Amino acid sequence: MNLKIKLITVALILNFICSILMAIININLGLIVMIIGMIVVPLLINTFSFIVGQGNRSILNVFIMSIFNLIYYIITSNSVMHNTKFKEVLAKYSYEKGDFFIHMNANLTALSQLIFIFLFYFVISFLVMKLFRKSVHA
């Protein structure tokens, strides 16, 4: 199998499997578990895909993998937002005192969130790709 296709296929399959698992696990997730499940896992999938698809690391591959990661994020976010315990998590991590307040956005799929998360996945994956490229040539 062509290394480029292998890289993208591995990323797609792993993102799909993790999306299903996060939808099934839709239980009382703490904030740390939500962050790990929605943000860190896709980056680990990308890293694993770079290891499996050894020779073909291009910016197009990173872009395609970031789109898969974004789809995973949307599926997982919808699952988390429809969890009955999500409002409790929002309330638990919100703080307000006078003019100072910290709160989580209740809409995890807002356009600004999606743009930020796509750029986050893309930049981190690109840096990981560059790191693997340098380690291969060293």
Results as ranks from 00 to 15, higher is better:
residue 60 L to S: 11
residue 137 H to V: 05
residue 99 D to Q: 14
residue 99 D to K: 08
residue 78 N to P: 04
residue 74 I to Y: 11
residue 95 Y to H: 08
residue 29 L to A: 11
residue 11 A to Y: 04
residue 80 V to P: 07
residue 42 P to H: 01
residue 42 P to N: 00
residue 64 I to A: 14
residue 97 K to L: 09
residue 93 Y to E: 14
residue 44 L to W: 01
residue 36 I to V: 15
residue 75 I to D: 12
residue 97 K to Y: 09
residue 42 P to M: 01
residue 68 F to M: 06
residue 24 I to T: 10
residue 119 L to K: 00
residue 55 G to C: 01
residue 76 T to N: 11
residue 128 V to A: 15
residue 89 V to Q: 14
residue 137 H to I: 12
residue 69 N to V: 01
residue 91 A to T: 14
residue 5 I to L: 13
residue 92 K to W: 09
residue 52 V to M: 06
residue 135 S to W: 06
residue 16 F to C: 07
residue 132 F to E: 06
residue 13 I to L: 04
residue 124 I to M: 12
residue 41 V to Y: 00
residue 20 I to Q: 04
residue 61 N to P: 00
residue 37 G to T: 07
residue 129 M to F: 10
residue 123 V to P: 13
residue 26 N to V: 08
residue 19 S to C: 12
residue 116 F to E: 05
residue 61 N to Y: 04
residue 8 I to D: 15
residue 133 R to M: 00
residue 130 K to A: 05
residue 82 H to K: 13
residue 115 I to V: 15
residue 73 Y to D: 10
residue 66 S to K: 01
residue 133 R to Q: 06
residue 45 I to L: 04
residue 119 L to C: 05
residue 108 L to G: 11
residue 64 I to L: 11
residue 91 A to G: 15
residue 12 L to V: 04
residue 40 V to D: 03
residue 38 M to Q: 07
residue 69 N to S: 13
residue 56 N to M: 01
residue 132 F to K: 04
residue 27 I to K: 14
residue 122 F to P: 09
residue 122 F to L: 12
residue 108 L to H: 04
residue 2 N to I: 05
residue 55 G to K: 10
residue 69 N to G: 13
residue 49 S to L: 01
residue 68 F to R: 02
residue 4 K to N: 05
residue 39 I to D: 11
residue 124 I to E: 14
residue 26 N to Y: 02
residue 74 I to M: 15
residue 105 N to L: 01
residue 88 E to N: 15
residue 28 N to D: 15
residue 128 V to Y: 14
residue 48 F to P: 01
residue 112 S to E: 06
residue 121 Y to L: 04
residue 100 F to I: 15
residue 114 L to E: 13
residue 71 I to V: 14
residue 111 L to A: 11
residue 114 L to T: 13
residue 25 I to T: 13
residue 112 S to Y: 10
residue 69 N to A: 12
residue 137 H to L: 12
residue 26 N to T: 08
residue 1 M to I: 03
residue 51 I to D: 02
residue 14 L to M: 08
residue 46 N to V: 01
residue 51 I to E: 03
residue 43 L to R: 00
residue 93 Y to R: 08
residue 46 N to A: 06
residue 122 F to Y: 11
residue 57 R to V: 11
residue 92 K to I: 02
residue 5 I to D: 10
residue 105 N to F: 02
residue 70 L to H: 09
residue 94 S to H: 07
residue 19 S to A: 13
residue 65 M to H: 08
